[in-house]
């Protein structure tokens, strides 16, 4: 990629202007408004509102479950991408197309169906609940919903990389006597790591913001299965506007920090890939 851009390309003013206007109306002004509202609070009040026991439990669940779901997605997503790219089996194309389904399915519907599947009388629940695996109305349910929602990320980031992977290196390693596992670990895995990390980070970021599917499957028990965004809604319904805003600001700041990290990761991955 050429580093020195020529200013001969037209449209910088137009596109940049439009981008900034659009961003201002949709992001900067609303986010600014939210922050301005919380500035009316003293720092001590803000801290108290943002770190109540219930809020801490909600953060813990939100980030814990998101992390768990992102890890599950990193592992199984990698596996799925590998299987879809490397092997031929009946139904491969169908599954490949279906991977985007969680993106396309409205999250509320996803929550409804997943709750339905894992509830005690559901298709999966009737087998799992007797085994002690309760997939609906438990923290596990939150993880299940988040796994569903974030699933396409790892698969879709990894697929093109796997497809473009140079097989010669693998062959060379095999010729040199490396076993398949060793080849995988020392030759393939390092190349796959950056895209898996990106996919993982995207799934994680998406999971933190997820709302629609979780409200249907988590049961929303305070301190136990209540996610942070839901707590915001509850605060609003209790007319505790400042409490809601404090939580919202905490989530916003964390999301922003997380995205900054992801972007750094991606730049790193890009450099790595070259």
């Amino acid at each position: 990629m050429a580093e020195n851009r020529f200013r001969v390309l037209p449209g910088f003013g137009l596109t940049m202007g439009f981008t900034l206007c659009y961003l201002s109306v949709l992001v900067l002004v609303p986010v600014g408004g939210l922050f301005l509202r919380t500035f009316s609070l003293s720092w001590a009040d803000f801290w108290r509102l943002a770190t109540t026991d219930r809020a801490l439990a909600a953060y813990q669940l939100t980030f814990g479950a998101s992390l768990a779901a992102a890890v599950i997605n990193a592992v199984f997503g990698t596996l799925l991408a590998w299987v879809l790219v490397r092997y031929d089996f009946p139904g491969r194309r169908f599954i490949d197309a279906l991977v985007d389904f969680p993106f396309a399915l409205p999250t509320a519907v996803a929550g409804l169906t997943l709750a339905n599947l894992f509830a005690e009388n559901g298709w999966l629940g009737q087998f799992l609940v007797p085994l002690g695996i309760k997939g609906a109305f438990t923290p596990l349910g939150v993880v299940i919903a988040l796994t569903f929602v974030g699933m396409p990320f790892v698969v879709r980031t990894l697929q093109p990389v796997l497809e473009n992977l140079d097989r010669d290196v693998e062959e060379a390693a095999a010729t040199l006597g490396a076993g398949r596992l060793r080849t995988f670990l020392s030759v393939i895995a390092p190349t796959l790591l950056p895209p898996v990390m990106t996919g993982f980070a995207l799934a994680f970021a998406r999971a933190i913001g997820e709302y629609g599917s979780i409200v249907f499957i988590s049961g929303n028990l305070p301190m136990k299965t209540e996610i942070a965004p839901y707590l915001i809604v509850i605060r609003l319904e209790e007319y505790d506007y400042t409490g809601a805003m404090a939580l919202a600001v905490v989530l916003l700041v964390i999301s922003f920090a997380l995205l900054a990290v992801i972007n750094v990761l991606e730049q790193w991955a890009n450099r790595f890939a070259k």
């Binding site: 049961g219 929303n220 028990l221 509850i234």
Partner: peptide, 15 residues
């Protein structure tokens, strides 16, 4: 003794 808290009365009935 409460296993699930719904936000509304109707949600509780559904549960």
């Amino acid at each position: 003794n409460v296993p699930v808290f719904d936000t509304g009365a109707r949600g509780a009935t559904t549960t």
